[in-house]
Design a protein around this nucleic acid. Sequence first.
DNA 1: GTCTATAACGAGATAGAC
DNA 2: GTCTATCTCGTTATAGAC
Lengths: 220, 220
Amino acid sequence: MSAVDAVEEPAHLSRIQEKNRALILDAALSEFSKYGFQGATIEKISKAAGMSKSNLLYYFSSKPAVYQAVLAHILDEWLTPLRTLDANGDPAEELSKYIMQKMKVSAEAPEASRLFANEIMQGAPRVMSVLEHELKPLFDEKSQVIQDWIDSGKIEPVDPAHLIFTIWAMTQHYADFESQISALTGSTLGKKAFRSDATSTIIRMVLRGIGLEPAKPNPG
Amino acid sequence: MSAVDAVEEPAHLSRIQEKNRALILDAALSEFSKYGFQGATIEKISKAAGMSKSNLLYYFSSKPAVYQAVLAHILDEWLTPLRTLDANGDPAEELSKYIMQKMKVSAEAPEASRLFANEIMQGAPRVMSVLEHELKPLFDEKSQVIQDWIDSGKIEPVDPAHLIFTIWAMTQHYADFESQISALTGSTLGKKAFRSDATSTIIRMVLRGIGLEPAKPNPG
DNA sequence: GTCTATAACGAGATAGAC
DNA sequence: GTCTATCTCGTTATAGAC
């Protein structure tokens, strides 16, 4: 079951329908991530998807319906890295892996990152229930994992919430502020060396922040 | 001279004009920071400022004019913390001070932070020239400050750009994602203890990341 | 399924009374 | 300075031809 309710997703779709829905969702992600819900228009989305506005409205009954479908489509991928954080693993290894996964997602799906950022900055009007009923339990669970590492002396004391927030902040920044980073350095996470440098910088700050020393080379 | 060009700012203003302009700029910051340039409307801005749409358009000739005025109004405050980073100071102290200043601005002007974030996420169409001609020289200058600290052995080697980006990321995250943080923890930078915890967590990660140990207590 | 046409509405901006 | 009225345009959404 999808995390976002009430999304229209017919059971049987022809090949052309699947393809057109995918084209729409892709174009919609691009527009919504740049301009937010209000700022984006179905006119521009339909043109970007290579079809008429009317045809888009044949596939999705309204603008909110398109938005909800986009959200549902990217949400699972977005929450997956945190889900994999393993309480029984080695803290340094688990956190390094988590940061690498987040950087991978930020590099490969920067628009998804910006869509969520846009939504949150508006006060999360359309995803507040997701935050409260899906993200918060996961957040609480993983905060407890970190707290257990502290209590068992595996890492130095730190507020688990701030540790998670700072990791989110750093890893998502490279996606959300891509245009600024590009203007200042000429590079983005798309470039392998740049992404590798960014990732190891973040891993080093996080691990040392909790009294651990990062393994030396080559985070992907 | 303001950083944003071509802003209409008449020389002589009556008290009531000053007050109305201020009301408009305040309401406009609130709307633009939530909905972006396209998503915000002068109708809603004028209502939030307690006046008619026509009256707003008496003070500012167009929507872009309002937006430019808001940008010009907040830009200096935004760039000031980085400007104060002193090459001749102690690295640990300078970076701690910088992080504290950024957190202070994020706490006191979260909407300004979100307005810039919104603009950057759209590809910075209306501030690209500011990025290139004001921020980039400052960024290059301060990157060199950090590089000098490295070359003189005061701090461990790190890519100065990534150090700056991660500091921006962490400090601005608390403003930009305020609603999410509130949903997950019930707190925000507005609460003293929360802000203090967040600030010291960030300082600890940054300083240890470059081989320094933070002074113990009480960052503001 | 895809199109054109159009209804219904909201938004930016202007004119002119007061 | 502030208002009402209005113009024009862009947007969402629907109707109906093909």
